Amino acid sequence: MPTPEFVLDLRRRIGHDPLPLVGVTAVVFRGEKVLVGRRADNGKLQCVSGIVDPGEQPADAAVRECLEEAAVVVRAERLALVRTVPRVTYPNGDQVDYLDLVFRCAWVSGEPHPADGELTEVGFRGLEQLGDVDAAHMRVIALAIAADDPAAFDGGR
């Protein structure tokens, strides 16, 4: 799905100035494999992510993003990590400061494929097949592996 309408409305008011947004990342497991996709905008391989809509519960946003981007139904199991992402400056000059809530999710149904154009490829990979995932996203995956670990908080806590 393209940029949410509420973000476009805000951009008309504030221009390219930094905008704080809540994002979600879904680390989806199917057995011993994790769902990853290659982003159409920057070519990076990572877990499904997106922006929480106004009034939407973050876990519901993670589930929604998986269906929209990868055509898979998932169940959010636990919060794995709360982190801030370094400021993102998009090619058009828009700046965003994301608070990212990372959820461990379980695959329920559906075979992954690029569903809305945000991903150019998507599928389940074994942990040994994640060599082109950057260190920050490997940490996200590592913190979500255990089904019952408490959530981690960036910032030394």
Rank of each mutant, 00 (worst) to 15 (best):
P91S: 10
E118C: 13
P112C: 11
P114Y: 05
E68M: 13
P86S: 14
G110S: 01
V102Q: 11
Y90S: 11
L101C: 05
V72H: 03
S109F: 08
V88W: 14
D100Q: 09
A80N: 06
R75H: 03
V102C: 13
L81M: 11
A115G: 01
G123K: 02
A106F: 08
T84G: 10
F103Y: 15
P112H: 08
V88Q: 14
T120K: 13
L101N: 01
R87K: 13
L101D: 03
P91F: 07
L99P: 03
V122L: 04
L67N: 12
C105A: 10
A71G: 05
E69W: 02
S109P: 06
G110Q: 02
E118Q: 15
G93V: 07
L101E: 04
L81A: 08
E111F: 05
V82R: 14
P114L: 00
T84I: 05
E69M: 10
A71T: 07
A115H: 00
R75N: 00
Q95W: 10
T84M: 07
D94L: 09
L81W: 07
R75W: 03
L99R: 08
Y98D: 12
E118D: 15
L67D: 13
D97W: 06
R78H: 15
G117D: 00
L101S: 01
R104L: 06
T89Y: 05
T84P: 06
V72K: 02
L67G: 12
R78Q: 14
F103I: 06
V82D: 05
L119T: 07
V74W: 03
